[in-house]
Nucleic acid binder design. Structure first.
Lengths: 249, 249
DNA sequence: CGCTGGATTGACTTGCGTCAACATACGTGG
DNA sequence: CCACGTATGTTGACGCAAGTCAATCCAGCG
């Protein structure tokens, strides 16, 4: 795996495979601005921001963004594509702790110990904004809306995970799969994508790992929902036919 | 186990039911100062802190500190005692998402939406420091070590939960119970309590809810570990006889 | 066009849940 | 301080949801 280059390159720098810096990477004109940035910021504040968040990075499908133990330097905002985060036990067993889609933050696990506690791997070719955390911290001390936004992002992650614990701790296989589909649907919708028809970027095995189920069980539940006319499944393409029915499962 | 008295009561202070404010509640002289506060703060910084964090609160066993939906105003530091946090599903099923002991923070789930997303209930008579979040935010914008500390606390919570997901998603009953015991042991030890002999404040059912198991299963696993001479169980009193053995489970 | 990784489906197994009986600890009021 | 009633905890017998194993199907890609 490549180390992540974060520091802005001087103007004369040759083109790089990894992090790139150019004028088009800025927040004030980003399509994701509203999902990514706090409201209550003036144009002036945005100008400040553009000076600080300078690099973006492409990650190809299957490529590792960061690994457990990597020194923590930046958090990331997913501009395009999607990722999975994976935790590994000593004995080699691994579990996916999250799928992360466009507009969502990534990497906040690293803040606590200055190093990452999971692996982040692209599920498809993706693009990220790299936000150097030290810079972000300074910014938070100057701009109150930014401070609040960062706190919300972190707290949001805490809530997301406790919802997951609920799922893993007290739902049966059928409920887990339906909750998963509804969750993906709702997050896509929040990002103005279709919430009724979407492509799952992960395999059945990855879904299973995330949901605490075996891939066969995931597959059986999807077939079951299809038989019940709640969804339409064509491999990775899912169409939700009866969201309420799914919710009632 | 005796409740741990942390702040001395001034002789003349009238007894209070809820939040109390008096000079003796301060961070610079608190026994938990090192677990609770960032290092790198000057005595001067601590003096600032003492002005801002003014109140403590007693909560009796079984009493609710905050409930799902309550407006979020403060985070808490547990000075003495312990708490459980509980998430409830629409249909009434509930799951315990955490046990929180002396020296640990509580309430950060509320930051995201300005309201709490779980119930926090005392497992025994407990004492908390109340830290008004708006005040803490200001403080973070002024004191860099404090800012970093708060970020670490939040990130620590994210990591804690992803460990839990690992447990719930990929461990069998036996492993869950042993991981739980080792985790409690390690946290007590970090707070300078005995890590080899301790009183569980929660019931088997509560343990089960947390671990995604039924109370009977928890009980069976504890009996099994006792038979294997890994632990000694006397109701809620646990003595760890062979921590390495437990780790190997 | 055939190979490979992923998905589906069926048959069988098993770990944990369920139900039930009994034991023990705990708190409250006499 | 004791007695009783209720909470909580333990243990056993049995059932079922999900795991395991295996055969087959399918799609994407070189």
């Amino acid at each position: 795996m490549m180390p992540i280059s974060v520091a802005p390159m001087p103007a004369a720098a040759p083109p790089q495979r990894e992090a790139v810096r150019h004028g088009s990477v800025n927040c004030s004109s980003c399509a994701m601005r509203n999902v990514c940035m706090p409201c209550g910021m003036s144009e002036e504040d945005f100008a400040r921001l553009d000076e600080l968040i300078l690099t973006s990075r492409k990650v190809r499908r299957g490529e590792v963004l960061y690994r457990t133990g990597d020194p923590f330097q930046s958090i990331y905002a997913i501009k395009a594509g999607s990722f999975k985060t994976v935790v590994t036990l000593r004995d080699g067993r691994e579990q996916i702790t999250g799928f992360h889609i466009v507009g969502e933050p990534l990497g906040m696990d690293g803040i606590c110990n200055e190093q990452h506690t999971c692996d982040a791997i692209a599920l498809e070719d993706s693009v990220l904004c790299i936000i150097p955390f030290r810079v972000l911290e300074s910014l938070c001390r100057e701009l109150r809306p930014m401070q609040r936004h960062v706190h919300r992002l972190m707290s949001g992650e805490i809530i997301r995970e406790s919802g997951l614990m609920m799922l893993l701790g007290s739902m049966c296989a059928e409920e887990r799969v339906s909750a998963f589909l509804l969750n993906i649907s709702q997050r896509l919708q929040a990002r103005r994508f279709s919430g009724t028809e979407f492509n799952l970027r992960m395999t059945r095995e990855e879904m299973g790992s995330f949901l605490g189920l075996k891939l066969e069980t995931v597959s059986r539940m999807l077939s079951k929902f299809q038989k019940e006319k709640l969804i339409d499944v064509q491999g990775k393409l899912i169409r939700i036919l009866d969201a309420d029915g799914l919710r009632r499962v």
